[in-house]
Design a protein around this nucleic acid. Structure first.
Length: 917
RNA sequence: GCCGAUGUGGUGAAAUGGUAAACACAGCAGACUUAAAAUCUGCUACAAGGAAACUUGUUUGCCGGUUCGAGUCCGGCCAUCGGCACCA
């Protein structure tokens, strides 16, 4: 028989295993905070609102409540903002720190398709789960301000803002104005529809058959949908667009005044892609205009006259270029395959049915069977339009293809010089004018193309330093350029732009990469458009008809055609005998474009946000209203750009008081799995916050996430690290509590109402100082290590001074609010005068005493030639001369001076002495 | 290809141009314990020498520069990660 002690022992209750009873007091305090509405934030107009306090609006990117629940990445940013919010509150600010749900979106809809469960049901369940999880972490949110984008009381205003966009245009001042101004000017319906910020377009879009919806360019990655990775094809469809491009200039410029990381500003700037240049018009010389000899063509051929008697007017080819100074080097013109002029030229038989005499074979395209330009061009264009975006990029990488149209254009600076017009898909229809002038000598792409297709390459820029001019794209001195010769690039640009304008051949202009925002989706679970169609025309609903609820549908499946699922709600669709509703819904971005505004006044049923509330919470004299916005980098471009756009429209129309929404932005870094890989189910390295809370408590989770490293950095998870901060919290617990004879926790006898000694006082005040500074800088990891140092100092003391420990708990409370609150309450039971009366969050952040930080003596290091050789403690008040004397007297210093005289002695008081020999 | 971020012990990391490695994790040793866990105390960048206290040298991706002094500033390169990708 085995000795009894080797038998499995009865399982200890989990309470006994715990180093401190967090699982008891954490829910207890959460309950108390909730019951007493400890974190309710009064609004202007409320009886308990104190207008004398400054405001601090600290915002998290609100989550999509997925079925998977919270992952450890969520609490990273949320804890950071929670600490800041609690800290600011203790420093006398009115703090707005809300939470809500970005709950429209594809997963709930796809789940509905699979199971038949209505997305509203799924969403409600997920929100309930997320709420429970977030509450278990003790965040100081004002839950009375919770918003949910799928709540009719919320999306009523999303629809309302859409109507504002629909009923606005951008004037010459670059600002949004009500469309009524145009009506007053007597503009026609068509003209007005052309100016609206929300307009209908037939442009080719990214259609994803599997998802049954179109996607914005930004939602397509490598020709596949960002969600799900399904193939995406291009097809023309009628869609709602938002005219964000009208704000491109301001969206770049206004970044200046924001406290955002430079890298994020750069990302947005690059995305918007502003470039200055000029439009230049190239007249198309064709058989139905005037016949002109080609000057330079290798075969010296002529454009073949057709037998068509009627002259035909064709608009010139307008190109955009950032290098108008190289116009003399333009050797050919390229149209994007989708360029409207191509269809026009094909239709009007401008593109000939025979290659001009002497056309090199390389110009005739790759299709062997096509023997004439007409068919070569149409074949090339068909092929290009069928190609998915992905193939255009992937197919042979970036090898250039193209075909000569058989038609020539006139170079405006050199009317006798005719240059061939090509079609090639390296020119994108969506950028600039969809056409370019090719200057092979000074553009990489044109250079590559010209080499491949044996087109002439003429130097027009002399590089400043002796680089090879072929393919030189930098600035230099103009040459072979008539009246530009000898001018440096910037001057040449100015001169040619002025000349073009004078001649009516072109115009200086600014262009952007940014395209208008494709705003409609063929989905069920999104905001319906407040639009009806009658007699082929759209019209906005009256405000009084909002919110427009989605129809109740049993069948959410995509129709398999571009017809949205809402078409299945036949009754709902029929607005009146003659009018039908718009069937598209808004994209998920819509709700997140303005949620921060709703938080200011979440229950207002009269207005999207009350005026006084908006002025107070979003005001403050800075361009951005939200004081701190924390979220992931994945939203660095889209969400932030869209929200800024909407905000500017609302600002122009006078609905909000700042031109920008977010003043300070911080991106938290991704948390990786313990294996250093991205957390994912398939890798099996996902950490569930619920498990961490169960094992170590919410405070330990919060603290660990902040202790891991700098907030912005990508960092791997470590359960051992969680244990480390858990042990720290247990040490704090034992400063106050000890196990009594019954094995229960009771107040420590070492805890006494005595003043702290000099050493402890210093440690405490250093901690107050450093933590305050570090919280402002969001350097939570170093703040925590300072609290550890402080705790270690207190642990080493025989007697624990109660008042000093309460002060310490105040500093700890933003980080570990439950433990701090519990220990404060424990101390209050014996020392009511020393502890906080109610909650620590009601207390004032302690002030540090600079005098407590100063010591009588400091350690000064002595260097010889920059190398550390000796140290000594010297009085803090010692003069430079005295310190120098002490240093030179040091035996070690003398030894390393090796008898040589000191050439120079640098003395940094309180720090070091460096003797140079 | 272009743009950006990062690079420091076995690990996460810290350092207004002024003692590199604070604070943790892991490891080692000791105390407590019948024992273990927990807790407490100490050691712990690397190399060489020394019984030891200690001494000397080297070290912040690599190469150079500025400076009395560089992880930090400047120039060049390399690697990893992220973004963009024919934007004229």
């Amino acid at each position: 028989m085995a000795p009894s002690r080797l038998l499995p022992r009865p399982l200890m209750s989990s309470e006994q295993r715990k180093a401190f009873p967090f699982s008891e007091f954490e829910p207890k305090w959460q309950g108390e905070w909730e019951a007493s509405k400890a974190y309710r934030t009064p609004n202007p107009g409320d009886t308990d609102f104190d207008a004398s306090k400054p405001k601090y609006f600290v915002l998290d990117m609100f989550p999509y409540p997925s079925g998977n629940g919270l992952h450890v990445g969520h609490p990273e940013g949320y804890t950071a903002t929670d600490i800041i919010g609690r800290f600011k509150k203790m420093n006398g600010f009115n703090v707005l720190h809300p939470m809500g749900w970005d709950a429209f979106g594809l997963p709930a809809e796809q789940y509905a398709i699979k199971t038949g469960t209505h997305p509203r049901v799924t969403t409600e369940a997920n929100v309930a789960n997320f709420t429970k999880q977030l509450k278990s972490l003790g965040f100081a949110y004002d839950w009375d301000r919770e918003v949910n984008t799928t709540d009719p009381g919320y999306f009523k205003w999303t629809q309302w803002i859409f109507l504002k966009l629909y009923n606005s245009y951008v004037g010459d001042d670059g600002k949004a104005h009500p469309i009524s101004e145009l009506e007053a000017q007597g503009l026609s319906r068509v003209e007005i529809d052309h100016r609206r910020l929300a307009y209908v377009s037939e442009a080719p879009v990214n259609w994803c058959p599997q998802l049954g919806t179109v996607l914005a360019n930004e939602e397509v990655v490598d020709g596949k949908s960002e969600v799900g990775g399904f193939p995406v094809e291009r097809r023309p469809m009628r869609q709602w667009m938002l005219r964000i491009t009208a704000f491109a200039e301001r969206l770049v410029k206004d970044l200046e005044g924001l406290d955002w990381p430079d890298s994020i500003k750069l990302l947005q700037t690059d995305w918007i892609g502003r470039s200055e240049g000029a439009f230049v018009d190239f007249e198309i010389v064709h058989s139905r205009s005037v016949v002109v000899n080609t000057q330079w063509h290798p075969a010296g051929s002529q454009v073949v006259p057709s037998n068509s008697p009627l002259p035909l007017h064709l608009d010139p080819i307008r190109v955009f270029t950032t290098r108008p100074d190289t116009l003399f080097g333009a050797e050919y013109v390229v149209l994007a395959p989708e360029h409207p002029l191509i269809a026009q030229m094909l239709g009007a038989s401008v593109i000939p049915t025979q290659w001009p005499t002497g056309t090199p074979d390389s110009w005739k395209g790759t299709n062997e069977n096509v023997r004439d330009p007409y068919n070569a061009v149409s074949a090339y264009c068909t092929q290009a339009s069928n190609k998915k975006e992905r193939d255009r990029l992937q197919e042979g990488g970036k090898t250039k293809t193209g075909v000569f149209t058989g038609v020539y254009a006139r170079n405006p600076v050199c009317p006798t010089k005719l240059i061939p017009i090509w079609v090639a898909d390296y020119v994108l229809v969506g950028y600039g004018t969809g056409a370019i002038m090719a200057v092979p000598a000074h553009d990489d792409r044109d250079f590559e193309f010209a080499q491949k297709f044996e087109l002439p390459i003429t130097q027009v820029v002399q590089p400043s330093s002796g680089q090879n001019w072929q393919g030189y794209t930098g600035e230099g001195i103009a040459m072979n350029s008539d009246f530009l010769n000898g001018l440096p690039t910037p001057e040449a640009k100015k001169k040619i732009a002025a000349w073009l304008e004078e001649q009516g051949l072109g115009k200086g202009t600014t262009n952007f990469k940014l395209r208008d925002w494709l705003f409609s989706r063929q989905r069920y679970w999104g905001e319906p458009f407040p639009i009806v169609w009658e007699n082929g025309q759209h019209r906005g609903l009256a405000e009084s008809e909002l919110p427009l609820l989605p129809p109740t549908l049993e069948d959410f499946k995509p129709t398999g055609t571009p017809e949205p699922p809402l078409s299945k709600a036949t009754e709902w669709v029929q607005y009146s005998a003659t009018a039908k509703r718009e069937l598209n819904t808004m994209p998920q971005w819509a709700g997140s474009c303005w949620y921060y505004l709703r938080y200011c006044d979440a229950r207002n049923s009269e207005r999207f946000v009350g005026e006084a509330a908006e002025k107070y919470w979003m005001g403050g004299g800075k361009p951005g209203g939200v004081d701190l916005y924390v979220g992931g980098t994945e939203h660095a471009v889209l969400h932030l750009l869209y929200a800024r756009f909407w905000h500017k429209v609302l600002f122009d129309l006078g609905y909000v008081s700042t031109p920008e929404p977010f003043q300070r932005l911080v991106n938290q870094g991704l948390i990786l799995g313990e294996d250093g890989q991205k957390m994912s189910k398939s890798r099996g390295n996902v950490v569930n916050p619920d498990d961490v809370v169960r094992e170590y408590g919410a405070d330990a989770l919060r603290l660990y996430e902040m202790f891991m490293g700098p907030l912005e950095q990508v960092k791997p998870w470590s359960m051992k690290g969680v244990e480390g901060v858990y042990r720290f919290l247990a040490r704090v617990w034992r400063l106050v509590m000890e196990v009594d004879d019954e094995g229960a926790w009771s107040l420590s006898k070492a805890l006494q109402d005595v003043p702290a000694n000099k050493q402890l006082t210093k440690a405490l005040h250093e901690t107050i100082k450093k933590c305050g500074e570090d919280i402002e800088k969001l350097s939570f990891n170093t703040a925590i290590s300072q609290m550890m140092v402080c705790t270690n100092a207190f642990t080493g003391a025989e007697v624990k001074p109660a008042a000093a420990i309460v002060t310490f708990l105040k500093v700890l409370s933003p980080f570990a609010p439950h433990l701090a609150e519990e220990l404060n309450a424990q101390i209050r039971s014996k020392f009511p005068a020393l502890a906080a009366k109610r909650f620590l969050s009601d207390e004032t952040w302690p002030a540090y005493d600079p005098a407590a930080l100063i010591e009588d003596e400091v350690e000064v290091v002595f260097q010889v030639n920059g190398k550390l050789r000796d140290k000594a403690r010297v009085p803090i008040a010692a003069t430079k001369e005295e310190i120098e004397k002490i240093a030179l007297a040091s035996a070690r210093v003398q030894e390393f001076m090796d008898g040589k005289p000191a050439k120079k002695v640098i003395v940094v008081p309180g720090k070091l002495v460096n003797v140079v020999v």
